[in-house]
Design a protein around this nucleic acid. Sequence first.
DNA 1: TCGAATTTATTCATGAGTAAAGTATTTTCA
DNA 2: TGAAAATACTTTACTCATGAATAAATTCGA
Lengths: 161, 161
Amino acid sequence: MSTPATASPPTDARAEEHEALRVWLRLLTCTNLVEAQLRTRLRTSFESTLPRFDLMAQLDRHPEGLKMSELSRLLMVTGGNVTGLTDKLAEEGLVERRDDPRDRRSFTVMLTPEGKRQFGAMAHEHEQWVVGLFAGLDHAEKRQMLKLLDRLKVHLSTISD
Amino acid sequence: MSTPATASPPTDARAEEHEALRVWLRLLTCTNLVEAQLRTRLRTSFESTLPRFDLMAQLDRHPEGLKMSELSRLLMVTGGNVTGLTDKLAEEGLVERRDDPRDRRSFTVMLTPEGKRQFGAMAHEHEQWVVGLFAGLDHAEKRQMLKLLDRLKVHLSTISD
DNA sequence: TCGAATTTATTCATGAGTAAAGTATTTTCA
DNA sequence: TGAAAATACTTTACTCATGAATAAATTCGA
Protein backbone atom coordinates (compact mmCIF):
# COMPACT_ATOMS: atom_id res chain seq x y z
CA MET A 1 0.00 0.00 0.00
CA SER A 2 2.49 2.63 1.21
CA THR A 3 4.91 3.42 -1.58
CA PRO A 4 8.33 3.99 -0.05
CA ALA A 5 9.71 7.50 -0.32
CA THR A 6 13.00 6.14 -1.65
CA ALA A 7 13.28 6.84 -5.34
CA SER A 8 15.32 3.82 -6.51
CA PRO A 9 13.55 0.89 -8.21
CA PRO A 10 11.17 1.68 -11.08
CA THR A 11 9.32 -1.63 -10.69
CA ASP A 12 7.87 -3.24 -7.61
CA ALA A 13 10.67 -5.48 -6.45
CA ARG A 14 8.35 -7.77 -4.50
CA ALA A 15 6.18 -8.42 -7.55
CA GLU A 16 9.27 -9.11 -9.64
CA GLU A 17 10.46 -11.66 -7.13
CA HIS A 18 7.13 -13.36 -7.16
CA GLU A 19 7.21 -13.52 -10.93
CA ALA A 20 10.60 -15.22 -11.11
CA LEU A 21 9.39 -17.74 -8.57
CA ARG A 22 6.23 -18.40 -10.55
CA VAL A 23 8.14 -18.99 -13.76
CA TRP A 24 10.50 -21.35 -11.94
CA LEU A 25 7.68 -23.37 -10.42
CA ARG A 26 5.90 -23.70 -13.78
CA LEU A 27 9.14 -24.71 -15.44
CA LEU A 28 9.68 -27.35 -12.81
CA THR A 29 6.12 -28.64 -13.01
CA CYS A 30 6.18 -28.98 -16.78
CA THR A 31 9.55 -30.71 -16.78
CA ASN A 32 8.39 -33.13 -14.12
CA LEU A 33 5.17 -33.91 -15.96
CA VAL A 34 6.99 -34.60 -19.22
CA GLU A 35 9.65 -36.67 -17.49
CA ALA A 36 7.07 -38.69 -15.63
CA GLN A 37 5.31 -39.49 -18.90
CA LEU A 38 8.51 -40.50 -20.64
CA ARG A 39 9.62 -42.63 -17.69
CA THR A 40 6.30 -44.43 -17.51
CA ARG A 41 6.13 -45.09 -21.23
CA LEU A 42 9.75 -46.21 -21.43
CA ARG A 43 9.09 -48.64 -18.63
CA THR A 44 5.80 -50.04 -19.85
CA SER A 45 6.77 -50.16 -23.54
CA PHE A 46 10.40 -51.21 -23.26
CA GLU A 47 11.12 -52.25 -19.67
CA SER A 48 13.73 -49.51 -19.63
CA THR A 49 14.47 -46.17 -17.99
CA LEU A 50 15.49 -42.63 -18.92
CA PRO A 51 19.09 -42.90 -17.69
CA ARG A 52 19.59 -46.06 -19.71
CA PHE A 53 17.98 -44.43 -22.74
CA ASP A 54 20.22 -41.39 -22.40
CA LEU A 55 23.35 -43.49 -22.15
CA MET A 56 22.40 -45.57 -25.16
CA ALA A 57 21.53 -42.40 -27.07
CA GLN A 58 25.07 -41.12 -26.59
CA LEU A 59 26.53 -44.43 -27.77
CA ASP A 60 24.22 -44.42 -30.77
CA ARG A 61 25.42 -40.93 -31.63
CA HIS A 62 29.04 -42.12 -31.35
CA PRO A 63 29.29 -45.48 -33.14
CA GLU A 64 33.06 -45.48 -32.67
CA GLY A 65 32.47 -45.89 -28.94
CA LEU A 66 33.07 -43.67 -25.93
CA LYS A 67 35.25 -43.86 -22.85
CA MET A 68 33.59 -43.91 -19.45
CA SER A 69 34.91 -40.43 -18.73
CA GLU A 70 33.41 -39.15 -21.97
CA LEU A 71 30.05 -40.67 -21.14
CA SER A 72 30.24 -39.10 -17.72
CA ARG A 73 30.87 -35.67 -19.22
CA LEU A 74 28.23 -35.99 -21.95
CA LEU A 75 25.56 -37.24 -19.58
CA MET A 76 26.55 -34.73 -16.93
CA VAL A 77 26.63 -37.37 -14.21
CA THR A 78 29.42 -38.75 -12.07
CA GLY A 79 31.70 -41.59 -13.09
CA GLY A 80 30.40 -43.96 -10.45
CA ASN A 81 26.96 -43.58 -11.90
CA VAL A 82 28.11 -44.41 -15.42
CA THR A 83 29.89 -47.49 -14.09
CA GLY A 84 26.66 -48.82 -12.59
CA LEU A 85 24.53 -48.14 -15.66
CA THR A 86 27.12 -49.62 -17.98
CA ASP A 87 27.46 -52.73 -15.80
CA LYS A 88 23.77 -53.48 -16.11
CA LEU A 89 23.51 -52.73 -19.81
CA ALA A 90 26.53 -54.96 -20.38
CA GLU A 91 24.95 -57.78 -18.37
CA GLU A 92 21.94 -57.54 -20.65
CA GLY A 93 24.15 -57.63 -23.72
CA LEU A 94 23.16 -54.17 -24.94
CA VAL A 95 26.56 -52.53 -24.62
CA GLU A 96 30.08 -53.85 -24.71
CA ARG A 97 33.30 -52.80 -22.97
CA ARG A 98 36.18 -53.12 -25.42
CA ASP A 99 39.81 -52.79 -24.33
CA ASP A 100 41.70 -49.73 -25.50
CA PRO A 101 45.07 -51.00 -26.80
CA ARG A 102 46.61 -47.54 -26.28
CA ASP A 103 45.70 -47.08 -22.62
CA ARG A 104 45.17 -50.03 -20.36
CA ARG A 105 43.40 -47.88 -17.79
CA SER A 106 40.51 -47.22 -20.11
CA PHE A 107 38.30 -48.95 -22.62
CA THR A 108 35.67 -47.89 -25.08
CA VAL A 109 32.02 -48.63 -24.57
CA MET A 110 29.81 -49.23 -27.58
CA LEU A 111 26.40 -50.60 -28.45
CA THR A 112 26.17 -54.25 -29.42
CA PRO A 113 24.11 -55.07 -32.54
CA GLU A 114 21.25 -56.02 -30.21
CA GLY A 115 21.72 -52.72 -28.34
CA LYS A 116 21.58 -50.80 -31.61
CA ARG A 117 18.43 -52.56 -32.65
CA GLN A 118 16.73 -51.99 -29.32
CA PHE A 119 17.76 -48.34 -29.12
CA GLY A 120 16.49 -47.69 -32.63
CA ALA A 121 13.05 -48.93 -31.68
CA MET A 122 13.02 -46.89 -28.47
CA ALA A 123 14.27 -43.70 -30.11
CA HIS A 124 11.56 -43.81 -32.73
CA GLU A 125 8.80 -44.16 -30.16
CA HIS A 126 10.42 -41.61 -27.86
CA GLU A 127 10.38 -38.95 -30.53
CA GLN A 128 6.70 -39.51 -31.20
CA TRP A 129 5.96 -39.26 -27.51
CA VAL A 130 7.76 -35.93 -27.21
CA VAL A 131 5.92 -34.56 -30.24
CA GLY A 132 2.65 -35.55 -28.61
CA LEU A 133 3.55 -34.11 -25.22
CA PHE A 134 4.44 -30.76 -26.78
CA ALA A 135 1.46 -30.66 -29.11
CA GLY A 136 -0.12 -28.10 -26.78
CA LEU A 137 2.14 -25.50 -28.40
CA ASP A 138 1.89 -24.60 -32.06
CA HIS A 139 4.88 -24.05 -34.29
CA ALA A 140 5.31 -20.36 -33.45
CA GLU A 141 4.94 -20.99 -29.76
CA LYS A 142 7.56 -23.71 -29.81
CA ARG A 143 9.94 -21.36 -31.59
CA GLN A 144 9.23 -18.66 -29.01
CA MET A 145 9.75 -21.07 -26.15
CA LEU A 146 13.04 -22.22 -27.65
CA LYS A 147 14.22 -18.62 -27.92
CA LEU A 148 13.34 -17.85 -24.31
CA LEU A 149 14.96 -21.04 -23.03
CA ASP A 150 18.09 -20.25 -24.99
CA ARG A 151 18.34 -16.83 -23.36
CA LEU A 152 17.81 -18.41 -19.97
CA LYS A 153 20.42 -21.06 -20.64
CA VAL A 154 22.99 -18.47 -21.68
CA HIS A 155 22.36 -16.51 -18.51
CA LEU A 156 22.60 -19.63 -16.35
CA SER A 157 25.88 -20.60 -17.99
CA THR A 158 27.39 -17.28 -16.92
CA ILE A 159 26.47 -18.16 -13.34
CA SER A 160 27.63 -21.78 -13.16
CA ASP A 161 31.15 -20.91 -14.44
CA MET B 1 15.34 -28.53 -50.39
CA SER B 2 12.90 -30.81 -52.22
CA THR B 3 9.34 -29.95 -51.29
CA PRO B 4 7.28 -33.15 -51.41
CA ALA B 5 4.65 -33.31 -54.11
CA THR B 6 2.06 -34.64 -51.65
CA ALA B 7 -0.37 -31.90 -50.79
CA SER B 8 -1.31 -32.81 -47.22
CA PRO B 9 0.78 -31.31 -44.40
CA PRO B 10 1.56 -27.61 -44.59
CA THR B 11 4.72 -28.06 -42.48
CA ASP B 12 7.49 -30.61 -42.74
CA ALA B 13 6.61 -33.30 -40.22
CA ARG B 14 10.23 -34.33 -39.70
CA ALA B 15 11.21 -30.75 -38.87
CA GLU B 16 8.28 -30.47 -36.48
CA GLU B 17 9.43 -33.57 -34.63
CA HIS B 18 12.90 -32.24 -34.36
CA GLU B 19 11.56 -28.98 -33.00
CA ALA B 20 9.56 -30.61 -30.21
CA LEU B 21 12.62 -32.60 -29.24
CA ARG B 22 14.75 -29.46 -29.20
CA VAL B 23 12.32 -27.62 -26.97
CA TRP B 24 12.20 -30.59 -24.62
CA LEU B 25 15.98 -30.86 -24.37
CA ARG B 26 16.35 -27.12 -23.68
CA LEU B 27 13.59 -27.28 -21.08
CA LEU B 28 15.35 -30.16 -19.39
CA THR B 29 18.74 -28.48 -19.51
CA CYS B 30 17.46 -25.23 -18.00
CA THR B 31 15.57 -27.01 -15.25
CA ASN B 32 18.62 -29.10 -14.39
CA LEU B 33 20.90 -26.07 -14.31
CA VAL B 34 18.57 -24.16 -12.00
CA GLU B 35 18.02 -27.18 -9.78
CA ALA B 36 21.74 -27.84 -9.50
CA GLN B 37 22.30 -24.24 -8.38
CA LEU B 38 19.53 -24.36 -5.81
CA ARG B 39 20.68 -27.74 -4.47
CA THR B 40 24.24 -26.56 -4.06
CA ARG B 41 23.28 -23.31 -2.37
CA LEU B 42 20.75 -24.97 -0.08
CA ARG B 43 23.40 -27.44 0.98
CA THR B 44 26.23 -24.98 1.51
CA SER B 45 24.11 -22.25 3.10
CA PHE B 46 21.70 -24.34 5.17
CA GLU B 47 22.93 -27.95 5.24
CA SER B 48 19.61 -28.89 3.66
CA THR B 49 18.22 -30.26 0.41
CA LEU B 50 15.54 -29.44 -2.15
CA PRO B 51 13.16 -32.24 -1.16
CA ARG B 52 13.29 -31.12 2.45
CA PHE B 53 12.78 -27.51 1.42
CA ASP B 54 9.82 -28.41 -0.77
CA LEU B 55 8.17 -30.41 1.98
CA MET B 56 8.65 -27.62 4.50
CA ALA B 57 7.36 -25.08 1.96
CA GLN B 58 4.09 -26.98 1.69
CA LEU B 59 3.74 -27.11 5.46
CA ASP B 60 4.50 -23.39 5.70
CA ARG B 61 1.77 -22.72 3.15
CA HIS B 62 -0.64 -24.84 5.20
CA PRO B 63 -0.20 -23.87 8.86
CA GLU B 64 -3.13 -26.07 9.84
CA GLY B 65 -1.05 -29.08 8.86
CA LEU B 66 -1.29 -31.67 6.12
CA LYS B 67 -1.86 -35.40 5.98
CA MET B 68 0.86 -37.62 4.53
CA SER B 69 -1.32 -38.38 1.53
CA GLU B 70 -1.84 -34.67 0.89
CA LEU B 71 1.90 -34.05 1.05
CA SER B 72 2.44 -36.92 -1.35
CA ARG B 73 -0.02 -35.42 -3.83
CA LEU B 74 1.26 -31.83 -3.49
CA LEU B 75 4.90 -32.83 -3.83
CA MET B 76 4.12 -35.24 -6.65
CA VAL B 77 6.12 -38.02 -5.03
CA THR B 78 5.16 -41.39 -3.58
CA GLY B 79 4.01 -41.94 -0.03
CA GLY B 80 7.05 -43.96 0.91
CA ASN B 81 9.22 -41.05 0.01
CA VAL B 82 7.20 -38.63 2.14
CA THR B 83 7.47 -41.05 5.07
CA GLY B 84 11.27 -41.01 4.87
CA LEU B 85 11.59 -37.26 4.55
CA THR B 86 9.10 -36.65 7.35
CA ASP B 87 10.89 -39.13 9.60
CA LYS B 88 14.15 -37.25 9.29
CA LEU B 89 12.67 -33.79 9.65
CA ALA B 90 10.79 -35.01 12.73
CA GLU B 91 14.00 -36.44 14.22
CA GLU B 92 15.56 -33.02 13.81
CA GLY B 93 12.59 -31.35 15.49
CA LEU B 94 11.57 -29.35 12.41
CA VAL B 95 8.19 -30.99 11.83
CA GLU B 96 5.75 -32.76 14.08
CA ARG B 97 3.33 -35.64 13.54
CA ARG B 98 0.13 -34.91 15.43
CA ASP B 99 -2.60 -37.52 15.88
CA ASP B 100 -5.85 -36.90 14.08
CA PRO B 101 -8.59 -37.46 16.68
CA ARG B 102 -11.13 -38.22 13.93
CA ASP B 103 -9.17 -40.93 12.14
CA ARG B 104 -6.58 -43.02 13.88
CA ARG B 105 -5.11 -44.18 10.59
CA SER B 106 -3.87 -40.72 9.79
CA PHE B 107 -2.23 -37.75 11.44
CA THR B 108 -1.45 -34.21 10.47
CA VAL B 109 2.10 -33.05 9.89
CA MET B 110 3.03 -29.47 10.72
CA LEU B 111 6.09 -27.30 11.20
CA THR B 112 7.37 -26.87 14.73
CA PRO B 113 8.23 -23.30 15.83
CA GLU B 114 11.88 -24.12 15.14
CA GLY B 115 10.89 -25.50 11.74
CA LYS B 116 8.99 -22.31 10.94
CA ARG B 117 11.94 -20.18 11.94
CA GLN B 118 14.40 -22.20 9.89
CA PHE B 119 12.14 -22.36 6.84
CA GLY B 120 11.59 -18.61 6.96
CA ALA B 121 15.31 -18.00 6.73
CA MET B 122 15.70 -20.48 3.88
CA ALA B 123 12.71 -19.19 1.93
CA HIS B 124 13.99 -15.66 1.97
CA GLU B 125 17.36 -16.64 0.56
CA HIS B 126 15.79 -19.08 -1.89
CA GLU B 127 13.64 -16.39 -3.43
CA GLN B 128 16.65 -14.16 -3.97
CA TRP B 129 18.49 -17.02 -5.63
CA VAL B 130 15.62 -17.67 -8.03
CA VAL B 131 15.37 -14.00 -8.92
CA GLY B 132 19.07 -14.03 -9.74
CA LEU B 133 18.91 -17.24 -11.74
CA PHE B 134 16.07 -15.87 -13.90
CA ALA B 135 17.58 -12.43 -14.30
CA GLY B 136 18.51 -13.41 -17.85
CA LEU B 137 14.89 -12.75 -18.82
CA ASP B 138 13.35 -9.30 -18.55
CA HIS B 139 9.85 -8.67 -17.26
CA ALA B 140 8.10 -9.15 -20.59
CA GLU B 141 10.03 -12.30 -21.36
CA LYS B 142 9.15 -13.81 -17.99
CA ARG B 143 5.50 -13.07 -18.64
CA GLN B 144 5.76 -14.66 -22.07
CA MET B 145 7.50 -17.72 -20.67
CA LEU B 146 4.84 -18.07 -18.01
CA LYS B 147 2.11 -17.95 -20.62
CA LEU B 148 3.75 -20.60 -22.77
CA LEU B 149 4.40 -22.87 -19.79
CA ASP B 150 0.79 -22.51 -18.72
CA ARG B 151 -0.39 -23.63 -22.13
CA LEU B 152 1.99 -26.56 -22.01
CA LYS B 153 0.89 -27.50 -18.52
CA VAL B 154 -2.77 -27.47 -19.51
CA HIS B 155 -2.03 -29.72 -22.47
CA LEU B 156 0.01 -32.09 -20.31
CA SER B 157 -2.77 -32.30 -17.77
CA THR B 158 -5.16 -33.53 -20.43
CA ILE B 159 -2.70 -36.34 -21.13
CA SER B 160 -1.85 -37.46 -17.60
CA ASP B 161 -5.52 -37.78 -16.57
C1' DT C 1 64.97 -42.67 -15.55
C1' DC C 2 62.76 -42.25 -11.28
C1' DG C 3 59.23 -40.37 -8.62
C1' DA C 4 55.34 -37.26 -8.31
C1' DA C 5 51.21 -35.79 -10.26
C1' DT C 6 47.43 -36.84 -13.20
C1' DT C 7 44.02 -39.55 -15.40
C1' DT C 8 40.71 -43.45 -15.59
C1' DA C 9 37.70 -46.26 -13.67
C1' DT C 10 35.64 -48.69 -9.57
C1' DT C 11 33.84 -49.18 -4.87
C1' DC C 12 31.43 -47.65 -0.93
C1' DA C 13 28.33 -44.87 1.90
C1' DT C 14 24.47 -41.99 1.61
C1' DG C 15 20.22 -39.70 -0.05
C1' DA C 16 16.18 -39.55 -2.72
C1' DG C 17 13.00 -41.63 -5.70
C1' DT C 18 9.82 -45.67 -7.33
C1' DA C 19 6.59 -49.80 -7.10
C1' DA C 20 4.62 -53.30 -4.70
C1' DA C 21 3.38 -55.71 -0.68
C1' DG C 22 2.00 -55.36 4.14
C1' DT C 23 -0.55 -53.51 8.37
C1' DA C 24 -4.00 -51.10 10.55
C1' DT C 25 -8.16 -48.57 10.56
C1' DT C 26 -12.43 -46.93 8.65
C1' DT C 27 -16.44 -47.27 5.78
C1' DT C 28 -19.97 -49.52 3.31
C1' DC C 29 -23.82 -52.18 2.67
C1' DA C 30 -26.31 -56.80 2.13
C1' DT D 1 -23.90 -56.99 12.25
C1' DG D 2 -20.02 -58.26 10.18
C1' DA D 3 -17.42 -59.34 5.90
C1' DA D 4 -15.55 -56.95 2.04
C1' DA D 5 -13.71 -52.79 0.17
C1' DA D 6 -11.42 -48.61 0.63
C1' DT D 7 -8.07 -45.62 2.81
C1' DA D 8 -3.68 -44.18 5.25
C1' DC D 9 0.61 -45.06 6.10
C1' DT D 10 4.93 -48.02 6.44
C1' DT D 11 8.20 -51.34 4.84
C1' DT D 12 11.01 -53.51 1.53
C1' DA D 13 13.62 -54.03 -2.49
C1' DC D 14 15.16 -51.72 -6.18
C1' DT D 15 17.09 -47.72 -9.35
C1' DC D 16 19.77 -43.76 -9.90
C1' DA D 17 22.43 -40.00 -8.34
C1' DT D 18 26.34 -37.93 -5.57
C1' DG D 19 31.06 -37.48 -3.34
C1' DA D 20 35.00 -39.45 -1.31
C1' DA D 21 38.36 -42.98 -1.23
C1' DT D 22 40.97 -46.34 -3.75
C1' DA D 23 43.69 -48.71 -7.32
C1' DA D 24 45.96 -48.91 -11.51
C1' DA D 25 48.14 -46.93 -15.57
C1' DT D 26 50.10 -43.06 -17.76
C1' DT D 27 52.59 -38.75 -18.19
C1' DC D 28 55.84 -35.41 -17.11
C1' DG D 29 59.60 -32.90 -14.93
C1' DA D 30 63.96 -32.78 -12.73
